[in-house]
Design a binder for these strands. Structure first.
Lengths: 235, 235
DNA sequence: CGAGCGATTTGCGCTGGCGCAAACGCCGCA
DNA sequence: TGCGGCGTTTGCGCCAGCGCAAATCGCTCG
């Protein structure tokens, strides 16, 4: 096995989907994997495309979003290294339900439907990992439904920022920086509000010194204030 | 095998989770199943309860809802005969993420975590069925996120009514009647609005002759008008 | 250097729909 | 028969946040 293969196996071992697999199984999984490098701002796949493959992200960040028949857009989630994505449709209707855009240069790996089925068959752990992953996703999305249904814009933005910090934040000099570019429009599309309302809120928080944005990178300086807004239970 | 067992097997064969299973596997599944009858308005389980079991509904209807730390309540979905429910947490944190209430007298069947794991192991089809079911649920919930994020109250109510009609409607003399009781509050909690707004909308539709409610049973007479509201893409 | 584009900020007016409050109809129970 | 509880209806006032529009900033490219 060459150096490159060894490094590839390390990358695969870090994937959620392959957690707990023995080394020989990893070898098996690697044999069926297709690895791709994708540049920033490229689109990995479109809503409605088929046939679907099961994807996992080695390195970089991705934005998953849906567009309605009207122009309305909703950001469903952000994919970070190790995450599985674009693979639920393998078990439903065989078409991607959303768009995937590269927020940074990235490396992804994917498997065909038949290969994944065989792998799951041979290595049962992959199937249970899969169930756990989409189970957690389901609970997460249901929480978003609750937020959208019960909370005001500012509170929703607060929750969103907290989730992004926990999810894609790494500590820097002046606070915690979210690892991928985040436009005002993105924030609005996550929270189900307009560009304008999101901008107003974030600008207000910037002036209060709770966070800063430079070149679409958000750095949170004062987490506890934002937590306060998120947890406030007044109308 | 007695008459009762034969009927039980028929009921089990109709469950989504057990679709496509051979008869001997059904026998195996039945052996581990716990069957319960539950009266209308009783609670099957509470948010936060544990340990979790995997449930399926033989007969009747159930409402699944979450309550926030404040009083706010959200109806997540309605369970109809054949559906799997309350089982995702088996693969996540082991606690029910929502409340389940019986909307009618009902019969449910459930399996313990260890039994389900063994059954999945012996009958691989159960695992893939499971993935398909929660995969479809995930796409459905994501659609709700999109609706909540982009549509106005009236349009959301229209979509909700259409979904309920397709999901739990059966044809009657004057239209299509939804098979379980549906309060104004329920409709509001599905759509993320208030009792008042929901009531106003439904009353307006009643006066327009699009639907009728009697004794919390909703009958839709004019589907196409409601579809028009649902599909309208004006702000 | 100037043009053009994408992202953001900000002011202004309007309205959907929320909060409050009151009243009504229906039912089961004492 | 009257009472209390639950679900529902409806009027009224108000405000969060949307739609529109314009201006600013920074960047890239010809």
């Amino acid at each position: 096995m060459g150096m490159m293969d060894a490094r590839t196996n390390d990358s695969l071992a870090a994937l959620q989907l392959l957690k707990g697999l023995p080394p020989d199984a990893l070898e098996d999984v690697r044999a069926a994997a297709r690895i791709r490098r994708v540049p920033r701002n490229a689109r990995l796949f479109n809503q409605g495309d088929g046939p679907v493959r099961a994807h996992a992200l080695i390195d970089g960040y991705i934005r998953i979003s849906q567009s309605g028949s009207d122009g309305a857009q909703v950001v469903m989630r952000f994919i970070r290294p190790g995450d599985l994505f674009g693979s639920v449709a393998l078990f439903t209707d065989g078409r991607y339900p959303a768009d995937a855009d590269a927020l940074t240069d990235l490396t992804e790996v994917s498997w065909s439907e038949t290969d994944l089925a065989q792998l799951m068959d041979r290595h049962h752990r992959i199937a249970t990992n899969f169930i756990g992953i989409i189970g957690r996703r389901l609970e997460e999305v249901q929480n978003r439904v609750r937020e959208l249904a019960t909370q005001r814009v500012e509170q929703r933005i607060a929750h969103t920022m907290l989730r992004l910090v926990r999810h894609g934040g790494h500590p820097t000099a002046d606070g915690i920086t979210i690892a991928f570019p985040l436009r005002r429009k993105d924030i609005a599309d996550i929270c189900g509000t307009t560009l304008h309302s999101a901008s107003r809120t974030i600008t207000r928080w910037e002036k209060a010194g709770w966070l800063t944005t430079r070149d679409q990178r958000v750095t949170v300086c004062n987490l506890s204030e934002i937590e306060l807004v998120a947890e406030a239970d007044q109308p």
